Simulated scan of single mutants.
Amino acid sequence: MQAFDQIQELWQKHEVEVKFSADEMLQQAKKEVNGLKLKSALNILGMAASFIAIVALWIFFHFNSWTTHVGISITIITIGVYTIILYRDYRLISRTDFTAHPNEYLNNLKTYQINRYKLYNTLYWFYTVALSLGIIFYFIEILSLFSLIQKVIAIGLTFLWILFCSTILRKAVIKREKERIALLIEKFERISQQISTP
C-alpha cells in the first residue's frame, strides 16, 4: 500500500507540458475561422433573403394605405443597412490570409470583435426600434382586415417574438460568439508568439 501511495504522490507531482506547433495551431485555427466565416455568410444570406422577400411583397401585392408603404420602406432600409454592416464585418475576417499574415489577421479579428460588440449592443437596439416602427406602420392597414381575436394574436405573437429575440436569443448569441472570438484571438496570439520566438 505504501508503494501505491508513493506512485500516486509521484504522479501528482509530475507535470506534463503539451506544446503544439504553430502549424498544428494554424490548422485548428483554420477550421474555426472557416466556421466563423460560414456563420457570417449565412447571416448575410438570411438578411438578403429577407430583403428580397419584403421587396417582392411590396411589388406584387397592392396596398391602399400610405402607412403600409412607409412601414415596408422602413423595414427594407433597416434590413439593407444591417446587411451592409454584416457584409463589412465579413470582409474584415475573410480578406486576409491568416496563414500568411497571422498578425494582420489578429488585428482584423480584434476589430471584428469590437464591431460585433457594437452590433449586438448599440446598433441592435436601433435595428429593433426601426423594425418595430416598420411593423407598426405595416400593421395599420393589415390589421384592419383581421377580426379582434386575429388582431390580438398577431400583435401578441409579434411582440413575443421581438421580446424573445431581444432577450433570450440575443444573450445566447452574444455569449457564444464572444467566447468563440475570444478563443480565436487567444489562439492567434499564441501562434504569433510561437512564430516570433525561435
Rank of each mutant, 00 (worst) to 15 (best):
M1Q: 05
M1S: 13
M1I: 02
A3W: 13
I7G: 00
Q8M: 14
E9I: 00
E9N: 13
K13V: 02
K13F: 03
E15T: 10
V16F: 10
V18W: 05
K19D: 04
F20Q: 06
A22N: 10
E24T: 07
E24P: 01
E24K: 08
M25D: 03
M25V: 04
L26S: 02
L26R: 00
A29R: 01
K30Q: 13
K30G: 15
K31W: 05
E32V: 04
K37T: 06
S40E: 03
S40C: 09
S40Q: 10
S40N: 09
L42V: 13
N43L: 10
L45E: 15
A49E: 07
A49P: 00
F51G: 05
A56N: 08
L57G: 05
L57I: 11
W58A: 12
I59P: 00
N64E: 15
N64D: 15
H69P: 00
I76E: 03
I76A: 04
I79L: 12
G80N: 09
T83G: 09
T83V: 02
I84C: 03
I84Y: 12
I84W: 10
I85M: 11
I85Q: 04
I85V: 15
L86I: 02
R88I: 13
R88H: 09
D89G: 15
Y90R: 06
R91I: 01
R91G: 08
S94K: 12
D97W: 09
D97R: 04
T99N: 08
A100G: 07
H101Q: 14
N103G: 04
N108D: 15
N108E: 12
K110V: 08
K110G: 04
Y112A: 08
Q113E: 13
Q113H: 14
I114L: 13
N115P: 01
Y117H: 12
Y117Q: 10
K118R: 14
K118H: 12
L119Q: 11
Y120I: 07
Y120S: 07
Y120V: 05
N121S: 14
T122W: 07
T122P: 03
L123V: 07
Y124H: 04
Y127G: 01
V129S: 03
S132L: 14
L133C: 11
G134P: 06
F137S: 04
E141T: 05
L143G: 07
S144H: 12
L145S: 14
S147I: 04
L148W: 10
I149P: 00
I149L: 13
Q150Y: 03
V152P: 06
A154I: 02
A154M: 12
G156F: 01
T158Q: 02
L160T: 08
W161A: 15
W161P: 00
L163T: 12
L163N: 05
C165G: 01
C165L: 13
S166Y: 01
S166T: 13
I168L: 14
R170A: 04
K171R: 15
A172M: 11
A172W: 12
I174P: 03
K175M: 08
E177K: 08
R180C: 06
I181A: 08
I181Y: 03
A182M: 06
L183K: 15
L184G: 05
I185N: 03
K187F: 05
F188Y: 15
R190P: 01
S192K: 09
S192D: 14
I195P: 09
S196G: 06
T197V: 11
P198L: 12
